[in-house]
């Protein structure tokens, strides 16, 4: 708990928290009290849960100094696979996660073992996954099979009044926070991101770390795909397009550096929630999504600028 307090108070996320507070104040001033209703908070968190599950894993990728642009089509692929097997939850989650791990491991292979530039390599795999997804699904959205009850519970159920997607998001957040902060693996992830060469000399197999990190992101994407399908029991193959940029925005808003070595899951969660608040807040005020886009860009700029200012203005 004290750790959480330190995170919130510390310089690292100060900019985001401050802006979040200001934005919420504006929303509340303009739209009345409806923002702070339980229903709205639940809606807000649920709407970002799919993105959040992925963001937690992407934080690890970003900490190693890499990036993944193929996530948008990867989640589409996983969601379509979930849809194809939606009659049986076990099968659905198994194949979705397997597909996610396969895609993620392929990215990890390219970036970790072959040491290709992460940006371009994942851009290439984005194209490849796009092709595979559209060929596999034949472009159709998958919706017809009678869904299993467990799958329905995953997407639409509640545990103690809290929608299941939020619980899954929270679980992933805790797991990845634990992985990154409390385990040896997490330390190695930071080491690889901070300086690959010195990490190599201190006996860390950087390629393995990168491979594992990408595979974990694949796993998270598999779960996120299942949740995405289960929420409305229907999915279009391209419904994740553009999600990779939202995820990137959230992770960066949370104080993770694109050059690696710096970042934390708690910050990412703040970033995810902020992205959710922007969209939800504008709906409450009664403004359209275009305003959301413009504000999201400006907010990202301000947050980054504040971040750079507070960290002494070192340009990567």
């Amino acid at each position: 708990m004290s750790n959480l307090k330190k995170q919130l108070k510390g310089k690292e996320n100060f900019g985001v928290v401050a802006m979040m507070v200001v934005f919420i104040a504006i929303v509340v001033a303009l739209s009345g009290s409806s923002f702070f209703t339980t229903k709205n908070i639940a809606n807000l968190l649920r709407s970002v849960s799919v993105m959040g599950i992925m963001s937690c894993a992407v934080t690890l990728i970003m900490v190693t100094g890499n990036i993944d642009l193929s996530l948008g089509w990867m989640i589409g692929f996983c969601a379509v696979i979930t849809g194809q097997h939606s009659g049986n939850f076990g099968e659905a989650i198994f194949w979705a996660i397997l597909a996610g791990i396969g895609c993620g491991a392929f990215n990890g292979f390219l970036v970790g073992i072959l040491k290709l530039n992460a940006f371009i390599a994942t851009l290439g795999t984005m194209y490849a996954f796009k092709g595979i997804t559209t060929l596999y699904s034949d472009g159709r959205f998958v919706t017809k099979l009678a869904p299993s009850e467990v799958l329905k519970f995953v997407g639409q159920g509640e545990i103690g009044g809290i929608p299941t997607p939020i619980i899954i998001f929270a679980l992933f957040a805790i797991i990845f926070w634990f992985l990154l902060k409390k385990t040896e693996f997490g330390t190695k992830v930071y080491a690889v991101g901070a300086n690959q060469r010195s990490a190599h000399f201190s006996g860390i197999r950087a390629w393995l770390i990168v491979l594992v990190v990408y595979t974990l992101a694949g796993l998270a994407t598999g779960v996120a795909g299942t949740v995405l399908y289960a929420k409305v029991m229907s999915v279009q193959p391209y419904s994740g397009v553009g999600l990779e940029f939202d995820v990137l925005t959230a992770v960066v808003l949370g104080g993770t550096s694109v050059t690696g070595g710096k970042g934390n899951v708690l910050g990412t969660i703040l970033g995810v929630i902020f992205v959710g608040i922007l969209s939800n807040g504008f709906t409450l005020i009664g403004l359209g999504s275009n305003a959301t886009y413009i504000t999201q860009g400006i907010v990202l700029l301000i947050a980054m600028w504040a971040d750079v200012k507070s960290s002494g203005g070192v340009r990567s």
Binding site: T37, N43, V50, K231, G288
Partner: peptide, 22 residues
Amino acid sequence: AVKYCGASRDTAYEEMSALLVA
């Protein structure tokens, strides 16, 4: 309001949830 949902049922669901609160 006019809400743009892309082509995604999920977005329509989230947008409508928010609208019903507002």
